[in-house]
Design a protein around this nucleic acid. Sequence first.
DNA 1: AAAAGGGCGATTGTCGACAATCGCCTTTCT
DNA 2: AGAAAGGCGATTGTCGACAATCGCCCTTTT
Lengths: 246, 246
Amino acid sequence: MANLKIPRVIKMPIEVQATDALRDAIVSGSIAAGERVTEIQISQQMNLSRATVRTALHQLAKEGLLTLVPYTGWTVISLSAHDVWELYTLRSAVERLAGRLVASTITPAKIERLDGAMDRLVRECERGDVDRIAEADFGLHHTIIKLADHGRLAAQYALIEQQVRMLIRSSDAFDPEAQILKLDQHRPIVDAIRAGDVELAGQLSEQHNLVEGEKLSARLKALQEQALLEEPTATLRPARKRAALG
Amino acid sequence: MANLKIPRVIKMPIEVQATDALRDAIVSGSIAAGERVTEIQISQQMNLSRATVRTALHQLAKEGLLTLVPYTGWTVISLSAHDVWELYTLRSAVERLAGRLVASTITPAKIERLDGAMDRLVRECERGDVDRIAEADFGLHHTIIKLADHGRLAAQYALIEQQVRMLIRSSDAFDPEAQILKLDQHRPIVDAIRAGDVELAGQLSEQHNLVEGEKLSARLKALQEQALLEEPTATLRPARKRAALG
DNA sequence: AAAAGGGCGATTGTCGACAATCGCCTTTCT
DNA sequence: AGAAAGGCGATTGTCGACAATCGCCCTTTT
């Protein structure tokens, strides 16, 4: 008999569903960056207990999507220029390691999966839809990470990817000219990994991220300058109810 | 008047105290690796509510120190050979980036802090106490990480360090011979950073960790072989109360 | 004797209520 | 009018109780 992998069905607690829903809301921008959220507000919207929502919020805080000021409130992160620098330097280190690991353990099966992700990127680039191109781009990077067979690396990459998604959303769309170069940037990386060239795969992966970080940083800097004058002062607590007039 | 940094005293919720205490118990080995823990047991020992303890457990699970099986129980991680590989490959990537960053932004002030950490390691090596040498070792690495001025990098390194501490504890003591070589291993890294040699600082940091990982992996493999026969089967739930005899 | 099925207790999951804390707003004083 | 001090409401922090779920153990069956 085949040694079937029994999926081991476990009932997912509502906690994780709430966490996933909230994470998606933040990453997708349904809840804006810098916005304040309260436990009661969310628990009412989701029809859940405050304790359950609170657990979800704590999880997302650990993922770096929220900050909590004790006895005061939760706030969605808003990424600064320094955050962009942190994200892309860290991502370059993570992807460099992933590229090296996959290249050093390359197999026909891995090449097949790699080609599948690369082919999808090629097709989407020909199609021209920027959102689908972006997804295929993430998909290729994600494939390389998975092939590294490194749980902690994958977990760390997931956190980075979430915040990068918030970034590229706030820059609204990609630079149209950059779309054309996308294939030229990724093909060498895939080729180096396929060839088992550890050093080259690592170096190209690292360099690719540093370049992307620079481009995104420049674009965001321009966007933020014009938005600097909006809402200069933010209150930490909400406005209080006015006293009743006589 | 001097622009004094007001520490902004905020009352720390008991949650974080409980989290810190539990984390310390796990990392220090007071709660053994692989051990099952229950919310009630801990809440009674700490004289706290289950909800508070539960929050702390969730935090530590996010840090990778605990695993939670829904409706079943919490278990302290026990690190396998693959985990050792993950930890040291990831640590090498993180420290490589840190080394590069510090080297590329080196200043007299940073050199001073670097020298302070290195001097401490030198003194402790002359003293000969393995525990204090280990702490000075961690201290030097920690100093480099802090000098990188990279929040996410520091956070990731903290998680890795915790698990590495669990590892070296289970290998009981360091290899006495390795203590002598410790200075020879760290001095070149510090020198490269001081000289602002980005490439060399990164390469030496990376290599140092990979070597350390190999050594620890070999030592643990020997230890685990003799411990393989102990407790071959572990129950997921505790023993149930026996039915009363007539 | 070996295998299949259900009972049952141990543990986590969820909820609502109350307490602690913070900071905005009003008031008071100068 | 400006500055300082206190009230007060909004929000998080903590707690205990009840519900949901899982898996060990015993029973039953073959």
